[in-house]
Design a protein around this nucleic acid. Structure first.
Lengths: 224, 224
DNA sequence: ACTCCGCATATTGTCATACAATTAAACCCA
DNA sequence: TGGGTTTAATTGTATGACAATATGCGGAGT
């Protein structure tokens, strides 16, 4: 039926067609797609090509595949994207200082929005305070790192700017290794820094909060 | 040989192993990988699984595949990722206001660094000035949009923060459609805004530059 | 000896087929 | 009607085969 598409990898073209199919039919995340066999018939290619295309799409979360449930539209997984981009950055070796500076831009950039929202939603402060409380009593390095990441993520999430959160997820890949060299004494300092930061945010002391956060992130500079 | 990895899609695990292989061997873009058969032997899986994994990786540009040349490490194709992020947007619809605010954060966040570098590298100013000059005399909308994107890219690039530039490239995808609704009268205003912005940057008037840029980007808000 | 043409060969691209694993749905029986 | 069991549909993985194609080697011609 399909009169031989152009050149290029067949599976790439198939992936393109599948995306078109989703958009043309107005499918939303969770909606189901035809089976692999049906798609193979529809596009006039073998199941192999369909699978290579769906695998590629599934890899980044555009679609999900499960035995017996078939294919369905997925929510694109930002974390997955972060992994790839992280890989990209890893092999390109961006200088750590640039990563740190970028992180400062992203995180402090979210603060004004977070402050605004916090003024009308006190539970944002509560949440961050609670997280920092957990951080304060955590003894194991690994758990501490996870919590620290969560704290920074929630802090940025409080800005309400989802794309910014996605970018931050990405940068986190690199900071994991920095975090692993954190010293015991620095934990406490970090926790106190967090506290001053969110208190300043709550009180509307925006520039103070920015300074605090910048200093907090810059402490990584010593370790590069 | 490999004693049955964990659960999960075999091809996902293979993709993971391939990424590890690249990192462990310190391969750079352009370096060649083993052939599909060799990888199949190495990982103890069939060629199908290797192909599904390599297809997924190739889809976003982590590796390249060509007949007779074999597999090689690629540069992650920002355009490819953008495409897929754009698809994400088409399905999930981030509120345009969030995108605009995110963009303001990214671009104004680069300004302090740009100002610092511009003080010691006057050619950065020259370059931007030249670009804006071209912008001033461009008559066709399409060319104007391309130039405008280039201007903003170079502006951010002047900050020296490559990761920030990468993020901005992602956001650009979303702004293309806004730009297409630009009115003739607004072109001129945009060009003058650019000029005031870079002049302020050159003069070290940082907060003035930030205000100018914020206002410039916020002008998109009217069009959503 | 040097150049250029052609061919063998290695590698990805695509296909057909088969079976395993899983699970959602249908069905049967009490 | 309810619950357990069977069935069937769908993805997951493997094997084998052939096509297409570019690369590098070798041979022929000058």
């Amino acid at each position: 039926m399909t009169p031989v598409l152009e050149r290029r990898n067949l599976s790439d073209r198939v992936a393109e067609r599948i995306k078109e199919y989703i958009l043309d039919h107005g499918l939303k995340p969770g909606d189901r797609l035809p089976t692999e066999h049906a798609l193979a018939d529809r596009f006039g290619v073998s199941r192999i090509s369909i699978r290579e295309a769906t695998k590629a799409l599934a890899f980044i979360g555009i679609i999900n595949a499960a035995p017996r449930r078939g294919l369905s539209v997925g929510q694109v997984n930002m974390h997955r994207v972060s992994e790839f981009l992280g890989f990209h950055l890893a092999i390109n070796n961006y200088p750590p200082v640039q990563l740190i500076e970028t992180r400062i831009v992203i995180e402090t950039g979210g603060l004004p929005h977070a402050a605004k929202r916090m003024a009308s939603q006190p539970e944002l402060y509560e949440r961050l305070c609670d997280l920092n409380g957990q951080l304060r009593v955590t003894k194991k390095l690994e758990a501490w790192i996870e919590l620290d990441i969560t704290f920074h993520r929630e802090l940025l999430d409080a800005s309400g700017l989802k794309p910014l959160v996605a970018f931050n997820d990405l940068l986190d890949l690199f900071f994991r290794r920095f975090r692993e060299s954190v010293k015991k004494a620095e934990w406490a300092a970090g926790v106190e820094g967090h506290q001053r930061l969110i208190d300043a945010l709550r009180d509307g002391e925006l520039s103070l909060a920015c300074d605090e956060l910048r200093e907090h992130i810059e402490s990584h500079k010593n370790r590069v």
